[in-house]
């Protein structure tokens, strides 16, 4: 079990290119995050929880689908940690598991209105499914 967690942790660090050890715990990412209120785990927690291997709660958290990938945390982090990339890697680790797509093409029709740009649909599918 410990081995499994370690593998997952290494995989997330590898594909994100993020080194969570660079974090100095200042919380600026969470201080600037526009989706903070929608998230159960906040950007700085993603960083520290991945670092400590406490990844399971993140995989099951709705927070994964509330991040706007607006890169505010990436640009404003004083240490160059890039939390959004880490959140993206955890999200991929979740949706890449078989049957774990968070949104599929079948879900789309009920979400449509006549003005919604195509861009929103392809973006959401790319973020929420594999």
């Amino acid at each position: 079990m410990r081995k499994e967690i370690e593998n997952l942790q290494n995989e997330i660090i590898r594909i994100s290119g993020v080194n969570p050890r660079k974090c100095m715990r200042c919380g600026k990412c969470s201080g600037t995050c526009p989706a903070y209120d929608e998230m159960e785990y906040h950007p700085h927690q993603f960083v520290s929880m991945v670092e400590s291997g406490d990844i399971e709660p993140l995989l099951n958290s709705k927070s994964l689908y509330q991040c706007l990938t607006c890169f505010a945390c990436v640009d404003r982090c004083p240490r160059g940690v890039e939390p959004a990339k880490l959140i993206e890697a955890v999200r991929l680790a979740a949706v890449r598991k078989q049957g774990q797509n968070h949104m599929t093409a079948n879900d789309i029709p009920e979400k449509l209105d006549e003005d919604i740009p195509q861009q929103a649909l392809v973006s959401a599918l790319r973020k929420y499914s594999k």
Partner: peptide, 11 residues
């Protein structure tokens, strides 16, 4: 009674 808050301002 200065309020010290551990954290950084984002914006």
């Amino acid at each position: 009674n200065v309020h010290y808050i551990k954290g950084m301002v984002g914006k």
